[in-house]
Design a protein around this nucleic acid. Structure first.
Length: 400
DNA sequence: TCTGGGGTCCTAGGACCC
DNA sequence: TCTGGGGTCCTAGGACCC
């Protein structure tokens, strides 16, 4: 059994790089560049150029705060479709080096190069990673950093050591020693809440946590979490690289420039969100059994209500018919200004193939064959004549 | 300083069935 | 008339990631 050879490939300030490629004369010339919520009053920074980070700007920070820290910075919106396109282009390059490529997020990938020894004539993992980095840079014009190790978690953490624009490989057998150099907060999965609990016992570093046996950790943090942490701080992570993970849910949500108070405006927004989510659902040839409506109140409290159906649905009309009463239920429980509304569809199944006959009969039939045919016909119209060619008000009048 | 948008996974409690 | 344990499904909420 050969040692696993895993790589974690992470784009450096991805949204900033993409924004510059898309607009070389504008964003491309700005040293101090921020990507994120510029167009709306309530936005956060998605990505900051490295010179901006020197001013203390971080992604996730409210745009207003970021601009105060770095007043000379230029803020541009997220180039969404270009980010998705370049993600696919990077994947194509990576797949030339190994068929096992997992897209972990819009800007990072995992690769498994185990078993490529013959192909690469026992080339050191560091050298293969360097060639991969250069290939992506030359062909897609995107700079990536690459971490390598025999363990998935360690490969990811090695990337931090490689940034920006380098390669760092942790040798096989050196995982535990590498982990000892880190803080507990560096471990993905140890978020703000868990850090708080750890610090309550004076635990900040991996080295400190290594002094606690499993029983003690279990008493302090619960058995399942303790076992998880006990392994991770020793560089143990059984997770494999999985090339194709099917999506589990699709969601669309929107934070309003100003809080909405009346139910009618919220219903109009809900309809638009349903159209976007349902359109993308059908675009993936999927149907959904569970519909969830999410609302964020003015005080940032987030609530949700969901309903699971016996049969999966896909049409705008049926999904809206399920979502609308869910919104009403949330509004009835608490009637205050809403800053965000969202729609999520989940428990997805392949949409093609014969329609299942419901055992419950016509009473359960939320969606007819006619609904599905109409939805797909409208999809074709929108694809041909543009998204605004079919107005929702004309086609998706809710049946009341 | 006022907090985006798109996701995944886990847990707990209740309903329901055997 | 009063009582069991286990399993599955669903809902709501929360932590976390990029």
């Amino acid at each position: 059994v050969s040692v696993r050879k895993l790589l974690h490939v992470d784009c450096d300030a991805y949204f900033v790089q993409v924004a510059r490629l898309e607009d070389p004369e504008g964003a491309g010339r700005e040293e101090l560049l921020l990507v994120g919520g510029s167009s709306r009053s309530r936005g956060v920074i998605t990505s900051a150029s490295y010179p901006c980070r020197a001013y203390g700007v971080r992604s996730g920070m409210p745009t207003a705060q970021a601009v105060r820290l770095c007043p000379a910075a230029v803020v541009v919106p997220v180039p969404r479709s270009a980010c998705a396109r370049l993600h696919r282009e990077i994947r194509v390059v990576l797949e030339r080096f190994s068929p096992i490529v997992e897209g972990a997020s819009i800007d990072e990938f995992y690769m498994d190069l185990t078993g490529t020894e013959l192909l690469y004539r026992d080339e050191a993992l560091f050298d293969t990673a360097t060639r991969i980095r250069l290939a992506v840079l030359e062909e897609v014009r995107i700079s990536v950093s690459i971490g390598g190790a025999a363990v998935r978690l360690v490969a990811k953490l090695a990337t931090n050591r490689a940034k920006p624009g380098g390669v760092f490989v942790v040798p096989d057998g050196g995982e535990a020693e590498f982990m000892r150099t880190l803080k507990l907060a560096d471990i993905p999965g140890v978020g703000p809440r868990m850090q708080e609990r750890l610090q309550h016992y004076g635990l900040h570093t991996v080295q400190q946590a290594l002094g606690y046996d499993l029983d003690t950790l279990s008493r302090l943090f619960g058995a399942s979490w303790a076992e998880w942490l006990y392994d991770r701080i020793r560089g143990i992570d059984p997770a494999r690289i999985e090339p194709h993970a099917d999506a589990k849910s699709i969601s669309r949500d929107e934070t309003f420039a100003h809080d909405l108070h009346d139910d009618e405006s919220l219903e109009t927004e809900l309809l638009h969100l349903v159209l976007r989510a349902a359109g993308d659902l059908r675009g993936e040839a999927l149907r959904a059994r569970t519909i969830t409506v999410r609302i964020r109140d003015a005080d940032f409290t987030t609530r949700q209500a969901s309903r699971t159906l016996h049969e999966p649905i896909e049409s705008d009309r049926a999904i809206y018919a399920v979502a609308r009463p869910l919104l009403a239920k949330l509004r009835k429980a608490r009637r205050t200004g809403a800053r965000l509304l969202g729609v999520n569809v989940s428990r997805l199944t392949a949409g093609q193939g014969p329609t299942q006959l419901s055992l419950l009969g016509p009473l359960d039939e939320l969606e007819s064959e006619r609904d599905r045919t109409l939805a797909h016909a409208l999809d074709r119209l929108r694809a041909r004549f543009g998204h605004d060619s079919v107005l929702p008000g004309r086609v998706v009048r809710p049946q009341s």
